[in-house]
Design a protein around this nucleic acid. Structure first.
Lengths: 225, 225
DNA sequence: CCAATCTTCCAGAGATTATTGGACTATAGT
DNA sequence: ACTATAGTCCAATAATCTCTGGAAGATTGG
């Protein structure tokens, strides 16, 4: 084979990864999978896809080796092949945020007004160490179980309204969710502040927390990994 | 607009970056642009593309804001919009290398046998500080001018054969080029060893050097940036 | 074994993308 | 002004991708 053909074959391989990242729906699936493994049906429901279409996208991701599967009875659980895949997705988001001027308005439209103060990671750790805050994880319970910020309490967004009275009234509450572009923490903070609570949002979510190699607790044990 | 529509619009933005990375030819263009700015015609020639096709790909990259242009007379120079774009490309390569089993054979076919020892960055810095090696940059002169490892000498691959006698005979020579998947350093080392010279290849090239935030010298001044 | 559930496979319609050649624009040099 | 060069625009074809609905495969529970 010629040099050119060999070089083309090599870049064809790199492009397999690029092609896998080329669909908004597949990126949304990666976004969900970055939080932990999920079944096809669960992904389809959350990403607003038909099961067939969702399965097809997952096959594409699988052929690019960005995800693998685990079969459990009648269900198939998909998960990322490694933390580097989540990292790649995170970097893609950052590049988009840095260079795409259309991203900001789209994010604002989806997430709602940047109403309140957003706490960054260092600030959170400082306040947490001083015992000044209660950190709540507003993602669905399974995602909390798959990995959360040590010391955070699971309060899924859907249950927030019912559990308002179980939250301390005197301490500040900091909510976080999947990542910088996840709407749940925004919703949670709006709900809490509507109730007069001193609530703030962690600027980034679990995606960025993992990428920064900060400690992650799993299941219901808050032990540091 | 509905929540769903807003979310779709957001991921549509992220997908603009993904789509830009979805073609082997565009990745090859990014690979070249990671070394420094270049004109359309020069990119087309090197990437084995028609000028029209090359221009079209560059437009795609430009619409994704991964590259910008600078006009100089009749020529248009394209360059990456930032080092984070090169970093994203580098991460994509790493993910491909980690997870794609077909990549290794394709790389071997293109680069040739992993004949000799490959020196890594730390080892190079150690030997360079001890004055034991001559580092040669075998990329084209313009790429050397746009940024090179401090202390490296420019010996473009095309001129290597003619300049053999200007290279020290007693010291080890370490050659590097664009990156881990660039064939030039491989070729250079094979040529040198065919001549009985003690030559080795830097494991990675300029792409990875920049990503590691190591000092880069520009033009013909070896001052550290 | 049958029924129900979850998932994948298949085929077709519709949309998007890649490539090519030819025309067009802009600039520099004569 | 005229010509040559570099690059982009345009239109047409071919190829690829996305989504949908229906069928088929696999597994569990009755």
């Amino acid at each position: 084979m010629s040099r050119r053909a060999d070089k083309d074959a090599l870049f064809e391989q790199f492009a397999r990864i690029g092609k896998a990242l080329a669909s908004p729906k597949r990126l949304e699936l990666l976004d969900l999978l970055a939080q932990g493994e999920r079944t096809v049906e669960s992904l389809a429901r959350t990403a607003n896809l038909g099961v067939t279409t969702c399965s097809a996208h997952l096959q594409t991701l699988k052929q690019a080796h960005l995800v693998t599967t685990r079969k459990d009875g009648v269900r198939v659980h998909y998960r990322l092949t490694g933390p580097d895949v989540a990292a790649l997705y995170g970097h893609l988001q950052e590049v988009a945020a840095t260079h795409l001027s259309d991203l900001q308005p789209a994010a604002r439209a989806y997430l709602g007004p940047e109403d309140t103060e957003a706490v960054d990671r260092d600030e959170l750790l400082r306040r947490a160490r001083a015992g000044q805050v209660t950190v709540i994880d507003v993602r669905p319970a399974e995602e909390y179980a798959a990995g959360h910020i040590p010391g955070a309490v699971s309060v899924p967004l859907a249950e927030l309204a019912d559990r308002l009275d179980t939250l301390p009234a005197d301490r500040q509450i900091v909510a976080y969710c999947r990542g910088a572009y996840c709407v749940m923490a925004h919703d949670a903070v709006r709900r809490l502040r509507a109730d007069g609570r001193p609530a703030a949002r962690l600027r980034h979510g679990m995606l960025e927390w993992r990428l920064a190699d900060l400690p992650v607790a799993t299941a219901f044990a808050d032990d540091v990994a």
